[in-house]
């Protein structure tokens, strides 16, 4: 059992009893192992259903847009930056949300675990020392959590919440030797045709279910560009140009707003790593405008501001 769980339930039940909030958004135990679905709790009796694990991959900031009434939400470092983003963009009011910060040591990738274990998994248990015990088909294996982390969690440098009303635990240490953009640099180093092949291959399995869009907290347009019919900018089939257009535009909409929470990748039924698109934009925002999403709500986002010193190398 995770050490945070008692504290999480205690905070949730206190806030509900005091009627400080109408609802608490957190995670529950899923019916399948390695998936923690989101849940909303409205009464103090139900807080026992709340849980915490290393499978809380979903970004709960997604449920805050245009919400009515006062709510409390559990937020990891990346979720918290998404909430700051929402505040900056006017999608949620700071006074309407109680942010319960959860310092995060990274979430695990369920596909990695399944691949290593091989058989069907019945149970995954985490020990406090970072050992993960996987059980299934009458056998049991032990792994290190650090080997099973999601790719985005491996390169995360904002593990601790940036804006919170309460913290569940003390902030966690952030390793200094993280190479944040190793993946992007690897792609950048390739020739242009190889890059095209790489991305063509990356999206070749996409079934256009839009799970990545739905899981993404930055995607809240009333009518998404893929649902527009007049004019129709993106074809609805699974033709490669259409799928590629969808992924390019989806990524572009998150430019300067994506917090690399990895919810899109975790939600994808086909296991597509669409972070290959968004991570590049994140890197560009940092390189060109020294901007990182969700660290402050006092500054306007990179693509919303103009200064005479902005780089314009690609202008004639």
């Amino acid at each position: 059992m995770h050490t945070y769980i008692d504290k999480i339930r205690e905070i949730a039940s206190r806030l509900l009893k005091e009627e400080a909030v109408e609802m608490v958004i957190g995670y529950q135990e899923g019916t399948l192992p390695m998936i923690s679905p989101p849940m909303s709790v409205r009464s103090a009796e139900d807080v026992e259903k709340l849980t915490w694990s290393s499978h809380c991959c979903i970004n709960l900031a997604n449920y805050l847009t245009d919400i009515k009434g006062k709510v409390a939400v559990f937020a990891k470092g990346c979720d918290c930056r998404s909430i700051v983003n929402h505040i900056a963009e006017g999608k949620v009011k700071r006074e309407d949300v109680v942010i319960i910060g959860v310092p995060c040591n990274g979430m695990m990738e369920r596909r990695t675990i399944s691949n290593i274990f091989g058989d069907e998994i019945e149970e995954v248990v985490e020990e406090a020392d970072g050992t993960v015990i996987v059980r299934g088909k009458g056998r049991e294996e032990k792994y290190q959590k650090s080997d099973l982390l999601r790719q985005c969690c491996r390169v995360c440098v904002h593990k601790n919440p940036v804006l919170y009303d309460e913290l569940v635990a003390d902030p966690v240490a952030i390793p200094e030797d993280i190479q944040r953009y190793k993946e992007v640099e690897k792609i950048e180093a390739r020739e242009i045709d190889k890059r095209w092949k790489f991305f063509e291959n990356l999206i070749s399995t996409c079934i256009r279910c839009y799970a990545c869009r739905d899981a993404c907290p930055t995607c809240y347009c009333p009518t998404c560009f893929v649902d527009e019919a007049q004019p129709q900018w993106v074809g609805k089939g699974d033709d490669e140009p259409d799928v590629m257009t969808f992924h390019i535009l989806r990524a572009f909409h998150t430019a300067g707003r994506c917090t690399d929470c990895g919810a899109c990748v975790s939600a994808c039924p086909m296991g597509i790593n669409m972070r290959a698109f968004t991570k590049k934009l994140e890197k560009d925002c940092l390189d060109l405008w020294d901007w990182e999403a969700g660290l402050t709500s006092d500054m306007r986002p990179a693509l919303e501001t103009f200064t005479p010193s902005d780089p314009e190398d690609n202008f004639k």
Binding site: V234, G235, T245, I248, L249
Partner: peptide, 10 residues
């Protein structure tokens, strides 16, 4: 809008 660019290429 980036839509215009992509749809022109398309």
């Amino acid at each position: 809008s980036p839509k215009f660019v992509l749809s022109a290429l398309r």
